[in-house]
Design a protein around this nucleic acid. Structure first.
Lengths: 126, 126
DNA sequence: TATTGTTATACTCTATAACTATA
DNA sequence: TATAGTTATAGAGTATAACAATA
């Protein structure tokens, strides 16, 4: 059942991403850029090897959702940030996540608290 | 937290599979062969397109865990079944899943019942 | 010498389309 | 004509190793 729920959540996220013609990884990346961030730091934030960010950001940049900017203070570093269009897309995805975000999001408060407690115990014992 | 738990369970399954020098998909396949089964039916059981089974079963067959047998009644159909060695590997994996199967497996009865109820409600509303 | 981003490469997982043997 | 299994191919997601530019 756990996997049923997480698979369902993943499928819905994939649908939202596809609605913006983004891959899942691209959509996840857009949602995790809060301000200018070096490629490497962004990779670490996503839990990826740095070599992956190049292609992901290439795709987003060619779609006009992000920009790379060389940091003058250290010209090895490139900051990635959302463009105006990128912010629009991010906000649209956030809205859909809040609306559609089904399953868990629609549990009542008591269920959410209980679920959190049980999962915490599960993780502790693992 | 849900993803933390399922990712954890997946990682442990991957470790068990790796212990038998199987990929995750190969291990999942071995665990879902209960008797002679046509390639296509096995693919459906796993939720895969039929074209995937060929490679998966190729790998298992080259390791001596399964055999393909042409069905005389309909020579288009090939039945896949576990060899003696395949059964050994499957049983070893089952044991490890029962032992290690951590997290969820070690929750007490009350937690398991509550978890199931909450997840059922989550799925209903999604 | 060490670090940033990039490239080249490879492997897993999955799907679609086209092929073959058989029905 | 339809079905079972296979092949060829492709794309997403990930990692490792080597490289150029910069520090």
């Amino acid at each position: 059942m756990l996997f049923a729920v997480t698979d369902h959540l993943k499928a819905q996220f994939a649908d939202i991403a596809a609605g913006e013609r983004l891959t899942v990884v691209q959509a996840r990346t857009v949602l995790r850029i809060y301000g200018p961030v070096p490629m490497r730091a962004l990779a670490a934030r996503m839990g990826y090897d740095a070599s992956n960010m190049t292609g992901i950001v290439d795709g987003l940049e060619s779609r006009g959702l992000v920009e790379r900017k060389v940091l003058p203070a250290d010209r090895r570093v490139k900051h990635v940030e959302l463009t105006g269009h990128g912010v629009e897309v991010r906000d649209r995805m956030r809205e859909q996540l809040a609306e559609d975000a089904p399953a868990i999001g629609r549990l009542d408060e008591a269920d959410r608290v209980a679920l959190h407690a049980i999962l915490s115990r599960a993780v502790e014992r693992s």
